[in-house]
Simulated scan of single mutants.
Amino acid sequence: MSSVEARNRRRRATVKDVALEAGVSRGTVSRVLNGQPYVSEDARTAIDAAIAKVGFIPNRAARSLVLQRSQAIGLIVHEPHSLFVEDPNIGSILMGANAALSEADYQMSTLIADTPRDVDRLARYLSGGLIDGVIIVSARVGDPITEAVARLDLPATFVGRPRDIGSAASVAIDNRDSARRITNRLLATGRRRVGMIAAALDRDSGADRLAGFVDAVGGRFDAELVERVPLYSYSDGQRGMRTLLARCPDVDGIFASSDAVAAGAMDVLQSEGRRIPDDVGIVGFDDSSWAMRCDPPLSTVHQPATELGRAAAESVLRQLRGVSDESEGRQLECPIVWRGSA
């Protein structure tokens, strides 16, 4: 092989090379690469074949400058790092969103907001033009990230429905109705002293699950039977159950506001000699991998986390195409999954 041939083999193929091979203009090649209309199917087929033959790799940085887009979507999770690793729902949301974005040739950038410093850093990052839109998970009312997104007018979709996001797009489940239904199912087993370990009351999901529990117990509601904990975590389930047992040792039913919380509560109940479900029936929420780790397996509400992630990503992509998702407020179904714990 001559030195000229070696240099040519090492040289990166260009749009001009593709155009010469396909027998079309460079402008036609550019329209195909940028997803623009008004190109015949014959020309598209010829260009695709030419790209494969000459080994052309699109320069995404240059394409982004032309389109004024980064081809990246941020998935912001406003949770502690420990919960990001522990909570299977977050992973399922992430996988669902990534699948939809990958199909659309977008990159997903995962951004975790744990501390106030993280929140400030993310607000600066969002203003840098490095992402085209955001999916926001676990936003609180008055969340600084929500405020930053609104200020920058970024295309955004929330997983969940915080009460202060106005007409912003969201995909969610009916946490209140689902909590009411599973609490009623637990009450129907004959339990008389049913309590709740209520987690994450600073966000819509936790507050709505507590409201659904209150709806179900109605006039029998006893505030002493509700123990509030900060996070949807196994350790908070343990702490909450210990405190609730000490205060109300006659409790015979528990609605834990997540499967991880329920698993922690079951660990404490069993260590105290309480038989499940004979002495205490317990139900959770999520139908995550935690539910099947429990012994007996946990009765719970199925949360379609993967579908929520996919729907949120598709919502942001629609906004980027100029299709408004304002006031969409889409809700997905959440069936009860009844197992041996109650």
Rank of each mutant, 00 (worst) to 15 (best):
I254W: 08
V77M: 11
G219P: 09
V229S: 11
S138M: 10
A19I: 09
W290V: 02
K16M: 11
S70I: 03
G142F: 02
D259K: 06
D42K: 14
I135V: 14
A156I: 15
G74F: 11
A265C: 15
G329D: 13
P116Q: 01
C248S: 13
E41A: 15
D278Q: 12
D267K: 12
N59H: 09
A113W: 08
D278S: 10
A148T: 10
L244H: 12
D278F: 01
A156F: 14
C248D: 04
V85R: 07
L320W: 09
R140L: 10
E307R: 07
E224T: 06
L126H: 06
S167V: 07
R242L: 13
R7K: 08
A198M: 00
D278H: 06
G219H: 11
D208Y: 01
L122R: 09
Q107W: 04
T157N: 08
H302S: 12
I57Q: 13
V268W: 12
V149Y: 07
R192A: 05
I73H: 11
A263W: 05
T306C: 04
Y232Q: 09
L65A: 05
P144F: 03
L225W: 13
R180E: 11
W290D: 08
D287C: 03
G273M: 00
R9P: 07
D236F: 14
D48I: 02
V301T: 12
L245T: 05
E314T: 00
D42T: 13
R176K: 12
G329E: 13
I182D: 00
V268N: 04
V251A: 12
I145G: 05
R121V: 07
S25M: 02
L122Q: 07
E272L: 03
A168F: 08
V280M: 06
W290H: 15
A6H: 01
L210D: 03
S288W: 03
R9Q: 12
